[in-house]
Amino acid sequence: MPSNNLTVTPSPHIKSPLSAKKIMYLVILSLLPAGIAGIYIFGLCSLKVMLISIISCVISEAVFLKLRNRDPKAILDGSAILTGLLLAYNMPPEIPFWIPIVGGVVSIVLGKQIFGGLGHNIFNPALVGRVFLQISWPVYMTTWKNPKWAIDAVSSATPLAKEGARGFSYLDLFLGNHGGSIGEVCILALIIGALFLIFTKIISFHIPASFIGTVMVLAWIFGGEGFFRGDFIFHLLTGGLVLGAFFMATDYVTCPLTRKGKIIFGIGCGVLTVLIRLRGSYPEGVSYAILFMNAVVPLIDRYTKTRVYGVSKK
């Protein structure tokens, strides 16, 4: 409702000249390198998954807005496209076509619109979709495809899977030369996008730094045989850690408002991620960790509230 400047909206309030719409498109832009890398590594099937997922999200959003008699222009704010893109980045490239469709509908309807649309959601919509799919069809969601130039191009485990599949060099992992989800494999491309977001001040470094830092420290301490023997670089470069820490945990609506809150949030995500990676039955814990911490955000916000200027404590 841009016509009415007096509308009271829940936080975050944006003070900079950047509008919500502009931010959305800048985030999408920053995600493009990873997408291009995904297409290059796995072939055109990745592009197909991305397109289906985005289209599904946009159509669900349009239908829901129509049902609620809201201004259909709201689909143009880019948030549905961003959700679709992030959802696709979390899927293996060779997935049956109907999975991204279902995922898109679930993300938008259950993750966002049922709470009242952008700015109202409690949980990150793309993660709601991804976790729903992961629980519903675990086999499809974890059947990874090797890079198209690899010899046995059928399917293999992501390096994080407990069965091992070690033997990747750090360079392979950094460039994305291994099986995994579309958008998470090429760390180089993700870092380019992340640096762009940090330098344009769209995201602050607090969440990613505390999230990744916690994961690395804990992986170093507990990740190996005995203490302080873990391969923390391996834990950094595999799975969805970089994608999750920079692009999903930092979602404005579902992360805490204050600096202190952000750091607590990041540490929480990190602890849970390592816990699930090392002890749980799922190979990857980033999405569960962020989703869990999303539920804690209202409490974090309440106890890290900045004091109103001029009001004494208590």
Binding site: V102, L110, F132, I135, S136, W137, P138
Partner: peptide, 15 residues
Amino acid sequence: FEPALIFILAPGALL
């Protein structure tokens, strides 16, 4: 039809 496991698990019930 490929059943969505989530519905026989706890989250599905609440949903």
